[in-house]
Design a binder for these strands. Sequence first.
DNA 1: TAACATTATGTTAGCGCTAACATCGACAAC
DNA 2: GTTGTCGATGTTAGCGCTAACATAATGTTA
Lengths: 341, 341
Amino acid sequence: MRKRKGAGRPTIADVANKAGVSTITVSRALRDPSKVSDHLRRKINNAVRKLNYVPHSHASALASTRSNIVGVIVPSLTNNVFADTLRAIYDDFDHGAFQVQLGNSRYVADEEERLVRSFLGQGPSAMIVAGTDQTDATRELLENAGCPVVQIMDIGDDPIDMMVGFSHFDGGRAAGHHLVQKGYQRIGFLGARMDPRSHRRLEGFKEAMQSGGRYDPDLIMTTTVSSSVSLGSELIGQLRARRPDLDAVFCNNDDMALGALFGCQKAGLSIPEDMGIIGFNDLEMMAAACPSLTSIRTDRYAIGKRAVEMIRAVLDGDIPDDKIIDVGFELQQRESTDRVG
Amino acid sequence: MRKRKGAGRPTIADVANKAGVSTITVSRALRDPSKVSDHLRRKINNAVRKLNYVPHSHASALASTRSNIVGVIVPSLTNNVFADTLRAIYDDFDHGAFQVQLGNSRYVADEEERLVRSFLGQGPSAMIVAGTDQTDATRELLENAGCPVVQIMDIGDDPIDMMVGFSHFDGGRAAGHHLVQKGYQRIGFLGARMDPRSHRRLEGFKEAMQSGGRYDPDLIMTTTVSSSVSLGSELIGQLRARRPDLDAVFCNNDDMALGALFGCQKAGLSIPEDMGIIGFNDLEMMAAACPSLTSIRTDRYAIGKRAVEMIRAVLDGDIPDDKIIDVGFELQQRESTDRVG
DNA sequence: TAACATTATGTTAGCGCTAACATCGACAAC
DNA sequence: GTTGTCGATGTTAGCGCTAACATAATGTTA
């Protein structure tokens, strides 16, 4: 008699045996307790505890053609912005019946497509992807995924399924408006790794400049290099070299803004008098900086939390009131733009 | 005839059919091509391509009692230190035959144990855990995991299996030595979230103070609150209030150091004359700060990379030369401690 | 050339779970 | 009482893959 050894740990059959029921009843008791009488449920739970039984997720996934995996694809693991959102997702999913499967697309759409393909191959319970700029193929894959899909960080009017985020265009415009209102005249833009969301911030910024009568493309400096504090410091130097009359900058994120601050300090400028600086995201350090730095506050943690809530609702059979959730943003004015007249 | 629908995508049987071979030959051709003749291998690869076949990982895991999952458990998703290491791990594993399964232990040992249990339940190909301070139960679980296990970030003399990291004690001592050498007299320590690695840094620092004849426990200020730039700023204020004669600080990480810098700037101190500041990890921003900040440079990316290399070696049947890899660290001296005696 | 390795491929029986259908008893309706 | 309905439980047959053994084809040695 041929025999394979298995993993060596207790199976659902062991539990069924001990509880004196059939395996399917154990399966039901664990997945949907309401389908089993109190009497048997108690016996089964006891057996589970005694045997220290843990369901074999692979066997379950194979039999049901549906895994307990939630696929999450973000473009960066080091960007604090995504870290906060991820933390929210893990805080919520990590404890329950779901396994988070994380992918890093490195801001490359084809990588994202490859990851989506690979994750869908596992029959995930849900998918979370960053942004709204998927390739056509990725979109189609996700539309036919047969599971809830949430696009996070950004919003738009054509969700694959659901969306949680905020308008980067509006955020960029608010930043631009603020600098105009503060009376700055030659307002620049510093942008690293111009991903689609940064582009929309820039578009919003441009609109603010135009409506404020200050639009000057020569004051916009962008690069595909990934953002860093050092880069912010460097770029502000380059922009000032090109346009010594520059008197304010909107940086596409907070690292760049902090770098711009350092760059100006090295050049002996005083902030906010000689140069106004505003960042984006409002990372924790912005309030602590000296001078403190103005930024557009975004609630990344809430984005993750709301995304999970939506997914849970759909999996529980509820239909969410709204397929698109705008968590908004808020201008945090601080010393770096607080000049008098 | 009862029929179940399956996932709807091609199976190994479809490939076998198209290629005119048995399923096991396809299985072998995909897992270990050397076991199949060139002739059949080519036919099989063609069939795979034509059918767009993707192996069902759950079925494979079930049949082989071994999944292609690599479990990674870190204590924080937002700490840049781990982000760099994770990036290395994902850069390497994400493309190949392995799936990274990430867990966040939140610096709680029992959480880590729970995650280890849950990951081992999936029969992982390898496990990566942060630090050397697992609970006894966790240690035992990992020792009997039947797969390579790498402890990262720290090193010690009693690895569960393998280790990649550096000595935090030595790092802390080097930081202390540096401040002594620079002639600072009343040298403080600022420590947030005193996890085991921070404790070892502090111990190293203490030894340096003792050997330098400057040990003063009153100058050590720690908290369990998690580290942040704001906290660094706040704590340096508190420490200076307690000990106005303080003239240098070693911060247990770079966020704290940056916060300390800002705190001192707000208080009107000049760095490095009135206060020397040194951080730990040498995040990218340290070099860009104004003044630039001295730090202990650690190569987090290398830690991830080496961990993956070790795992790959073991899975390929090689025995690594060394079970413990010390990637070391390097003092990066910058303006924040560069005062003239 | 017989005896024996060695290599390439196939057959069969699971891995642990759940979908789909079957059964059984309790209870209601007429 | 017969019929129907409904909820609780059981039986059976896979889900897609691979371990373990079996066999056929080839080379190797004395």
